[in-house]
């Protein structure tokens, strides 16, 4: 029985660890190895070890650099707006007086996220269409000028961020609302007795108390934003003039359209390092506030 006692704790982690090993770690090593070989799927040549050549090529590749900037631009636009809007929606829902109304609103905010990316994209592609789209038709009938939503280099990315907000903010808002609702009622009462205003209650009670959830929402959104692909690929194919071609799209095209697996893997590792650096900073900053 003693050995069982010693083994038992490991049994809890075994199922996940097994799946993780087979379908993350193993492919992970394959992907790691790929970055150091020249492998073009269509040729029957075996993979050749080329050292850091793929990384060197990536660092000198203007398309890769361009796609990195595009991705960082998306992250900088999308993550703060998503988290801030999610927070505002969560606070707004918390302030609602009717419970049934709050439930309904929460569900309605969450519903766009249930839509398949392929459908969300074709719907919004039509909304955004410059000449024959819904948005410009509405703008025009209100006497406002038309906008080149996804057809101008300046507006394309903000338009995609706008669509992404609609599509994804509900999930984050639900998590944050759950966090807010955990805060014990006594804290609010005490604050009211002190005569604290709404803003003060938000900064001094809501924000600190909800921090673990906020950290989770922030990290998940950042990781997701760095890997943006589906909505940009389907709505603009990365255009106009590559203004919305993200790193993941470039990796995808390199690995699967041009069949250069090794080079795609090397770029994935560079992206990975960038995301890791960002996430570490977030952990660090939010931990620090904690202390």
């Amino acid at each position: 029985m003693d050995w069982l006692r010693r083994v038992a704790p490991y049994l809890f982690i075994t199922p996940y660890a097994l799946a993780f090993t087979c379908f993350i770690i193993l492919p992970f090593f394959v992907a790691f190895g790929l970055a150091f070989v020249k492998l073009e799927l269509t040729s029957q040549q075996p993979a050749a070890f080329v050292g850091f050549d793929n990384f060197r090529e990536a660092l000198g590749d203007p398309y890769f650099r361009k796609s990195l900037w595009v991705t960082v631009y998306f992250v900088v636009l999308a993550v703060p707006t998503t988290v801030a809007l999610a927070m505002a929606l969560a606070v707004g829902m918390q302030a609602m007086t009717q419970r049934w109304a709050r439930n309904t609103v929460r569900a309605m905010l969450f519903v766009p996220g249930m839509l398949n990316v392929a459908v969300a994209a074709i719907l919004w592609q039509w909304f955004f269409n410059g000449e024959f789209g819904l948005f410009n038709h509405l703008l025009e009938s209100l006497g406002l000028p038309r906008l080149p939503w996804i057809s101008s280099r300046a507006l394309a990315m903000p338009s995609i961020v706008f669509m992404t907000l609609w599509w994804t903010v509900g999930g984050s808002a639900i998590l944050l609302l759950a966090g807010l609702q955990q805060i014990p009622g006594e804290l609010w009462e005490a604050a009211s007795l002190d005569g604290a205003g709404a803003w003060k209650r938000f900064t001094q009670i809501s924000l600190p108390m909800v921090r673990p959830v906020l950290l989770f929402v922030l990290v998940i959104n950042t990781i997701g934003a760095f890997q943006v692909f589906g909505q940009t690929y389907l709505m603009t194919r990365g255009g106009p003039e590559l203004a919305t071609r993200s790193v993941v799209q470039y990796i995808y095209e390199t690995a699967f359209n041009n069949y250069r697996l090794g080079y795609g893997a090397a770029m994935s590792w560079l992206l990975f390092m960038l995301i890791a650096a960002f996430s570490l900073v977030q952990f660090f900053v939010l931990r620090k506030v904690d202390a």
Partner: peptide
Amino acid sequence: PPPENNLGWVGFRQKK
């Protein structure tokens, strides 16, 4: 119309 890839087909469908 101003350049937007594949705009023509959407316009043709709309009879514009």
